[in-house]
């Protein structure tokens, strides 16, 4: 009975959704509930919809998404920790017509790679940065990140982030938006269907901007890390809405080279 139902379902005329071929068939290595998988999917879907798989090169960081190239069915390079924007700079300058993006986490982009991030943005390089901010170092086991919220517990801030002792979280996206080379800067999320749709529109806009060579585009995706936060996926999403979003508000920060007035 169940088998007959399944066979009916997989008939081509009943097909309502198909995984993009720009994702590989490899099982994702991310924790269940993590936003990385969704972020990967919508970026690859945009590449598919634009028909630019053969013209796109991605740069993977060091962090949870170090193996992004296992899942993204495009040519990719794996960067040293934090150096993806330098690599992308060279690639885009040598191949200006190709679509180049980096995919980086908060430790990679906002701590060890701060100089590369700021200078690539300030030079107005013509590639796209995808910045996944979950406020923690996921891969190494939940240590404090540059974007860890005040009071937030991590394995290296076990009593909560004490800003007097450990410094403040860095709003690097707002910082980057101030730079003349930054053309499109936005902060999005991928934990609800409506957010996924908004993020996907932002991804498409960023890729299209690469054709007109107007400056860098940076899309921050505020995401959860339920493993690192020691929560269930549902708890983590709620906690993210209640704590991360007030500190890292969603929405466009800079559009067409102009700061968005709040």
């Amino acid at each position: 009975m169940a088998e007959a139902f399944a066979n009916e379902l997989i008939k081509k005329e009943n097909l309502v959704y198909e995984k993009t071929k720009v994702l590989t068939d490899k099982t994702l290595s991310y924790c269940p509930g993590c936003g990385h998988g969704t972020a990967h999917r919508i970026i690859m879907e945009v590449i598919d919809e634009m028909g630019v798989q053969s013209e796109t090169i991605g740069i993977a960081p060091v962090g949870c998404s170090v193996l992004a190239y296992e899942f993204m069915n495009i040519d990719m390079q794996q960067a040293a920790h934090g150096r993806a924007p330098a690599i992308a700079t060279a690639l885009k300058r040598l191949m200006p017509k190709k679509y180049i993006f980096t995919y980086q986490g908060d430790g990679d982009l906002a701590a060890i790679g701060t100089a590369e991030t700021i200078h690539a943005c300030n030079r107005g390089e013509h590639f796209t940065i995808f910045f996944i901010n979950n406020g923690i170092y996921g891969m190494t086991g939940g240590q404090m990140a540059p974007t860890t919220l005040p009071g937030m517990r991590t394995s290296t801030s076990p009593y909560g982030r004490d800003v007097q002792m450990m410094g403040n979280p860095l709003k690097i996206t707002e910082l980057v938006a101030q730079l003349p080379g930054a053309y499109y800067v936005t902060r999005q999320a991928v934990h609800t269907p409506s957010n996924v749709r908004k993020t996907k529109r932002a991804v498409r806009k960023a890729f299209e901007l690469q054709q007109s060579a107007v400056g860098i585009s940076l899309i921050e995706i505020v995401s959860n890390c339920n493993s690192g936060w020691k929560m269930t996926p549902r708890q983590a999403n709620t906690w993210m809405e209640e704590n991360m979003f007030p500190f890292y508000p969603l929405g466009d920060i800079k559009v067409d080279g102009e700061l968005v007035k709040k």
């Binding site: 090169i57 740069i59 390079q77 960067a79 040293a80 150096r83 330098a86 690599i87 992308a88 700079t89 060279a90 690639l91 300058r93 040598l94 191949m95 100089a115 590369e116 700021i118 200078h119």
Partner: peptide
């Protein structure tokens, strides 16, 4: 030929990495 003054020696060698991975003489 592309010539760029990088923000650091670290960035410069990683730019070499990026270009070399695309088969360029960098």
């Amino acid at each position: 030929m592309v010539v760029l003054q990088a923000e650091s020696e670290i960035a410069a060698i990683n730019m070499v990495y990026g270009g070399a991975a695309a088969g360029r003489r960098v």
